[in-house]
Design a protein around this nucleic acid. Structure first.
Lengths: 190, 190
DNA sequence: TCCGCCATCCTAGCACCGCTAGATATCCGG
DNA sequence: CCGGATATCTAGCGGTGCTAGGATGGCGGA
């Protein structure tokens, strides 16, 4: 009875250790360095243990991504809350979004460019992802004009995502980034 | 003398065959299906032959990407040329960009999300990439207002890229795409 | 207290990947 | 016709994600 409780607790802790190890390793050396063998060594278990917790490596990455959604939502909420005006909020939230992507590139990749098997368009989307999207929506609400709020939010999000990914993959040079961000914010603030 | 000429010609043909095989395979089954072994089988040579033409698999993907740049530039040029007005040109070019990405997803991936070792920010950027960017720039030139042309072009491009990648990875649902594109075009047309 | 069962975990291995060294075959010029 | 350079292949290395099957250790019942 109590032994079973302990077992389950230990199991949950180990699962969390796997996700944490994957996250740390990805942040430190990129996702290419995250192999099931290194992950197993990190948690001091053998490889097959990973597969008793997750369906595969993709599922581990998805779990890391879900944690990232919470962080991003928090960062956006903080930026919006501290903004002096609605227009300033758009700029601040945009800057917070880009800063998150730049400071945690591996996390951002797991959330938005890799790990396709996350439930997105289906039901049970990660709640923190919904929260982050809602922050974006509330930020742009005052400036949507006569457009649909959801549509504008998604488009604004796409602009941010495009800036982030193109710059990080070398397609856009680092200098000029601030000006591009300013243009995006300006075009979406009226 | 003439034998050497034939040798070089055959070699060039084989190199083109490698790129074509990689491209076809990627378009048909995605880049994951493009392995050096399958590629070698496709051109009816052994694996090491690939490495006498290209430094590695990434270089092959880069060659495919370069071909894609030419196609994209042509598509954008055609869309711009046939537009009735400057404002309509923005919409048409945007639609052409998205259509290209949707119809050749593997090609688009090689060009803009994978194959990082392409010369982008350095010198000798692929000329067709420059041409495509120039088409975008000429398209938005009438609507830049008092912003910098290059900055606006890059930002507009980012918006298109974000729409494309987020939708194709399932982060944005297919319906609503036209409205999002319309919002992007609208926000950049003034 | 001891035993047999059952869940847990690990060792070993599969099929595949990108890539390369060394052996082999082919073709050319003298 | 032969020697040598060139082109090509066979075989293999170290790595990947993932899994089957055997060892191990703690549990409940006699």
């Amino acid at each position: 009875m109590s032994t079973q409780g302990r077992r389950e607790r230990e199991r949950a802790e180990r699962e969390q250790a796997i996700v944490a190890a994957a996250r740390d390793l990805a942040l430190a050396e990129g996702w290419d360095a995250v192999t099931t063998r290194r992950l197993a060594a990190e948690i001091e278990y053998s490889q097959p243990v990973l597969y008793s917790h997750f369906k595969g490596k993709d599922a581990i990455m998805a779990a890391v991504a879900v944690e990232g959604f919470a962080e991003l939502a928090d960062a956006l909420a903080a930026a919006r809350a501290s903004a002096a005006s609605p227009r300033q909020a758009v700029a601040d939230v945009a800057a917070a979004y880009v800063a998150f992507a730049e400071q945690r590139p591996a996390l951002y990749d797991a959330m938005f460019t890799l790990a396709v098997d996350l439930p997105f368009a289906t039901q049970d989307v990660p709640t923190d992802l919904v929260r982050g999207f809602a922050e974006l929506a509330e930020t742009v609400r005052p400036v949507v004009g006569d457009n649909d709020l959801e549509t504008v939010t998604e488009t604004f999000w796409s602009g941010l995502h495009g800036l982030v990914t193109l710059m990080r993959s070398g397609r856009l040079r680092r200098p000029g980034h601030d000006r591009r961000l300013a243009v995006l914010v300006d075009r979406f603030s009226r």
